[in-house]
Write a protein that binds this DNA or RNA. Structure first.
Lengths: 167, 167
DNA sequence: TGGAAATTATTCAAGCTTGAAATTTCATGC
DNA sequence: GCATGAAATTTCAAGCTTGAATAATTTCCA
């Protein structure tokens, strides 16, 4: 770990590089928050729902057979207790169904109801358009470059949070 | 608005472009959340504080003379009531001071105490290193390109949330 | 002046989020 | 069988976040 020539060597990072790193991060954070705010607002106004609910439904939509609570929380990278509350509300709204897992009395399988599926399908279609409204004007090569750079960032550090990678 | 040749024209966006937009957004969101999680965790473990508190202190550090509550919330782009609670806790921790504004009995000026300034200075120094740990390995040209692309994104849509721009 | 409108801030209810503790159930080894 | 630890989930306290409602003050302008 921490070779002498690594750009992240622990001694004396060049101030100009640090400054640029900070600039990039702050701008990335700002842009992301901006897009998130747009999505949140649109979900609220057009579908009377929230981003966390949307995220949960997206995960469940993808796994038609359902997910265990623990699978769900790790897929969304949020805490266990968090998902409990969101699912609770989705269940009482009739969008989600809880079914016991055969052979394991601890676990619960969580699945979209038909109504939940229909509802999410509509939201997802709108969501695609909102996102395309923002990102759709990027030239193809720029877009591809951005994707590649973001990939780098995601993997470009090993000092903190050496968690599990892509699902 | 919405010219016939605009890439975000309201009719029939090309599916391949939409798909790419979605890919880029999801990756950007993921990368941002990853960095945020690192910062949050480090703030918690090394300084026993939270990201919202850090953000508030960063804004107050920048404006030594202090900020009004409304200026603070609009600088951070969060709701009014939100700031109230965070400041409340910072005040009771001795990091922030409230002073009435001369000539306006409604307004309150909020300012870091010396202790708050010292505390933030230490956190900011560490924060720079964490961020550089992640972004510092990006080649200069890539980094500059990312910055430019993010700028584009921030300004690349006028349909939703036509809010005020940079401070 | 005097009153409608705007500004500033707090309060409130609802929901999101976390990390830790508690609970129940399962798996393993002896 | 049975204890011990691991796994799945919920509960909990604390804090964050929002949008709406309220309250106090200031501004504007007729």
């Amino acid at each position: 770990m921490s070779s002498k020539t690594s750009p992240s060597a622990s001694r004396k990072p060049e101030p100009e590089r640090v400054k640029q790193s900070l600039r990039v991060w702050l701008k990335m954070l700002k842009a992301t928050k901006h897009v998130e705010a747009v999505v949140r607002e649109n979900l609220r106004v057009e579908f009377d729902t929230t981003l966390p609910r949307f995220d949960v439904m997206a995960a469940l939509y993808r796994f038609e057979e359902g997910l265990k609570m623990s699978e769900l929380s790790s897929a969304l990278r949020v805490s266990n207790g968090n998902v409990t509350g969101i699912i609770e509300r989705l269940v009482s709204d009739g969008a989600v169904l809880r079914v016991p897992v055969a052979g394991d009395k601890r676990a619960m399988l969580v699945r979209l109801t038909q109504r939940g599926r229909d509802e999410f399908a509509r939201m997802a279609a709108a969501h695609e358009l909102w996102i395309n409204e923002i990102f759709g004007s990027l030239p193809t090569d720029i877009s591809a470059g951005l994707l590649a750079t973001l990939d780098t960032i995601e993997h470009a550090q090993g000092l903190y949070s050496e968690g599990e990678h892509d699902a």
